[in-house]
Write a protein that binds this DNA or RNA. Structure first.
Lengths: 216, 216
DNA sequence: CATTTTAGTTATAGCTTCTAACTCAAGCGA
DNA sequence: TCGCTTGAGTTAGAAGCTATAACTAAAATG
């Protein structure tokens, strides 16, 4: 996509960057984002400390890059599922699979934010992309004959976030509920808040994914 | 409660511990848990570095103590609301108020966990206490005539987490949905994932708190 | 072939957590 | 009231971290 056929210098540079990110993901998976150490990565790569600053301007820059890749990965997963004709439960399965694949990646995207942090614009653009797929799949769903609640009415004239998507408020409402409910189950499960409670978190997840129209 | 009338030594010690924790909460509120620095706290208190180790065995110990206080605070908030006769929406309001009061405290309790971490038993006991209040309030609610879904059936013989609470599976199901759905909205809101989307997060929250029986 | 670019180095500043050894004052029993 | 003991706070220092500066050496480019 972006100038793929560059000189050998660029090629090498891109490869080292990728290796750094790979090691960073390993560290994050085992120690969380707060445990990520540039020095440790450098050691693992056989180079010494400050060399990494040739590739990333600092720890924050590296983490931001990982967050970006996390969003990108989820957006691609969603896009692929939707293109394969997934319905809403199918999208939910894709989300759950993606989350369980690397819990810390999920938390990097949807977890505790650092108070001052503001995500760069291109990342929020990917977030919108994810939401767009969700809206598409929601819109394709057979409408549920539910009477609109107060929030759905509110959405009728607060739909800026949906961009120019033509979905009616009921679909917007459904998409938001889908997102927040699945995140609720998933984040608590991944954080270990269900451990020792003895029930099957996946059943809860799929029940929430099915939505309330099954009688709940 | 715990040996209140102790010698002046103990009294002083307890007060300094409290001051340390107060400064720690300030730091966490402005910089997050990852930005908490023992040295900085010591500086603010006019004492120098290692003095803090007389009061806490290390950074992790201090943070664990703060987590404990966070849980305790939420449990007390819930208990107070329930004792004041709050129904489920009332409990939801209490939760939201508690969360907005100090978002980073919410994340300390329900946010991204550090991979290896296992909460001490007395903290999980408080978590059960919170769940017990929730179950009580759910049980007092007028039952919704909803046909049980697969997860509710599953709960019928996976109810260990409810302790000896006599609530039927439908109530357990409602309590879990209440918890996960409100956490879903709240954590995304506090993490800033709704900023720029233009809708009123509080309306979404109360809609989710009202539950699906309003037609959704 | 000479020049420029740049990847990687070491040295260093300044921060962190945390341990060790020490000082000195306050509390307490006789 | 005296003397001993406990313990709060100190400085020193080890080991780690991020990040910058200055330098070396190798590779790409004119």
């Amino acid at each position: 996509m972006t100038a793929d056929a560059a000189g050998p210098r660029e090629r090498y540079r891109a490869q080292v960057r990728a290796e750094i990110k790979a090691k960073a993901w390993e560290q994050i998976a085992t120690a969380g984002a707060s445990g990520l150490s540039l020095n440790a990565i450098a050691r693992q790569l056989g180079m010494s400390g400050p060399a990494l600053y040739r590739y990333f301007s600092g720890r924050d820059d590296l983490i931001t890059e990982l967050v970006r890749d996390g969003y990108r990965s989820l957006a691609d997963t969603f896009r692929a599922a939707a293109d394969a004709g997934a319905d809403l439960p199918g999208l939910a399965r894709a989300l759950r699979g993606w989350a369980l694949e690397d819990p810390q990646r999920y938390f990097l995207v949807y977890g505790t934010p650092v108070p001052g942090y503001r995500a760069p614009d291109d990342i929020t653009a990917i977030a919108r992309e994810i939401m767009a797929v969700l809206l598409d799949v929601c819109a394709a769903e057979r409408p549920r004959g539910a009477s609109p609640d107060a929030f759905e009415t509110h959405l009728a004239d607060h739909r800026a976030w949906a961009g120019d998507h033509p979905a009616p408020p009921s679909v917007l409402r459904r998409a938001l509920a889908f997102w927040t409910r699945l995140h609720g189950v998933l984040s608590l499960e991944l954080a270990g808040h269900f451990t020792g409670m003895g029930f099957d978190a996946e059943l809860l997840f799929t029940a929430e994914a099915a939505g309330p129209a099954d009688g709940r």
